[in-house]
Design a protein around this nucleic acid. Structure first.
Lengths: 229, 229
DNA sequence: TCGCAACGTGACAGTCTCGTGACAGCGCCT
DNA sequence: AGGCGCTGTCACGAGACTGTCACGTTGCGA
């Protein structure tokens, strides 16, 4: 799996470390120290994935992410954000800007590579359209919409994020803590049982469309999303 | 969440403080004063996480980290480094060696525990073992599912953990005490005979699928999981 | 062959988990 | 201000799961 990764990061030490790890994982690394350099690097050939630092000189990573999403050439390129601890609270707005995943500094290279691979795998799975379909349910990432066949389903923000996470991480059990981490964002204090309630609401929203059994309870562990019962 | 943590630290005061905090957080603490002791402690059963002091007599923590990464048994075990203030600049080389996180001294035990939990959660999220198949039985770790051929088997939490342990430690006999340790978690008080009952339940759930004889009784010792009768 | 210890089995009551409905607080729009 | 959608929390109850006991069976050494 040879892939081209664009690393947008101004701090040399982190850049070098990342480059070292990615090359070891058989990936090609392109550097950009700031947003302008990133945009010009992309104008040539879009990479397979962009690794973006949250804090950049000139333009924030979030802003750049939005720009990249707006441009057709790069709208479909997965983006992973690098954030320092304490910046996590903006995870939700980041996810809404179309960022695919977050890695919080300090991170281990092992974790980084694992996340990158996961995101690449997912990107490949949804064929680049940004929408995922399974079990009669379709979620349109860029448009923030959910369909059951042709009819659109009205869905709240949290329910949407939960469903989106599930559909991008199907066939796998997650604990309530993990779901809080991933869907609510790492730095919030909410009861774990709150997850149950949102699961319940999501199930209730999907039920009228004959979409039962998609969200399964894994007793003693958490929940799982899967098209097969 | 009962976890085994190996603490590699030569300074007694820090070691005791850490041990106290971790035990309070329901973790089992193994201790090693230097690199050699650490390696020998690991040779038995690898822990779930290693807490490593940067400065150690004989071998630096970094060196030890590399050694651990190189060895297959411990390559996946998360490592957290304890560093004194001012040693931070070497963070990059540490991350290159595959260290998962840093905690800078002086630290609060609360922070330490939080970091440990975070790292454990991430390590667990990275999928771990994937799926294992043997003797016509397949267990899908990430999805938390068990199959006999194509049909899924309904299974309770404890039965699942027991089966999972057996399939990851097949062809070897375990005493009831060992099973309680590994499957129930070390800090619980249950009768040893309880193991028998769960073995029985597991056998019973597997039986309808023609999966007999997978769990064998080793009279006077305990039980063993094996594909061959 | 006998007797004992180890193991299998069924039943049971307590505990824990999860689903569910209700409710109050909050931000937003009219 | 009032209505409305959304969210987090709580309390309750059904059902699943668990640990333990009592008793039946089996294997093994004397």
């Amino acid at each position: 799996m040879h892939k081209r990764i664009l690393v947008v990061e101004d701090e040399a030490s982190i850049r070098d470390m990342v480059a070292f790890a990615l090359r070891k994982a058989d990936m090609e690394v392109i550097h950009a120290a700031d947003a302008r350099a990133a945009l010009s690097a992309i104008s040539d050939t879009p990479p397979d994935l962009i690794l973006l630092d949250w804090m950049l000189p000139g333009m924030t990573g979030l802003e750049l992410a939005r720009r990249l999403r707006a441009e057709e050439r790069t709208a479909e390129v997965p983006i992973i954000m690098l954030t320092a601890r304490g910046e996590e609270m903006d995870r939700v707005s980041g996810l809404e800007a179309g960022v695919d995943d977050y890695v919080v500094k300090p991170f281990s290279t092992r974790e980084l590579v694992a996340r990158i691979k996961a995101v690449l795998r997912r990107a490949q799975a949804d064929g680049g359209t940004g929408s995922i379909e399974m079990g009669g349910l379709r979620i349109d990432g860029p448009a923030h919409r959910v369909y059951a066949g042709d009819t659109q389903i009205e869905i709240g923000p949290t329910e949407y994020r939960l469903l989106h996470f599930f559909m991008t991480h199907a066939e796998r059990a997650y604990s309530r803590a993990q779901l809080l981490d991933q869907v609510w964002g790492g730095s919030v204090y909410v009861e774990e049982r709150t997850v149950d309630v949102h699961i319940r609401r999501l199930r209730k929203t999907l039920e009228p469309f004959g979409l039962d059994g998609l969200i399964q309870t894994v007793r003693g562990t958490g929940y799982r999303f899967s098209a097969s019962p």
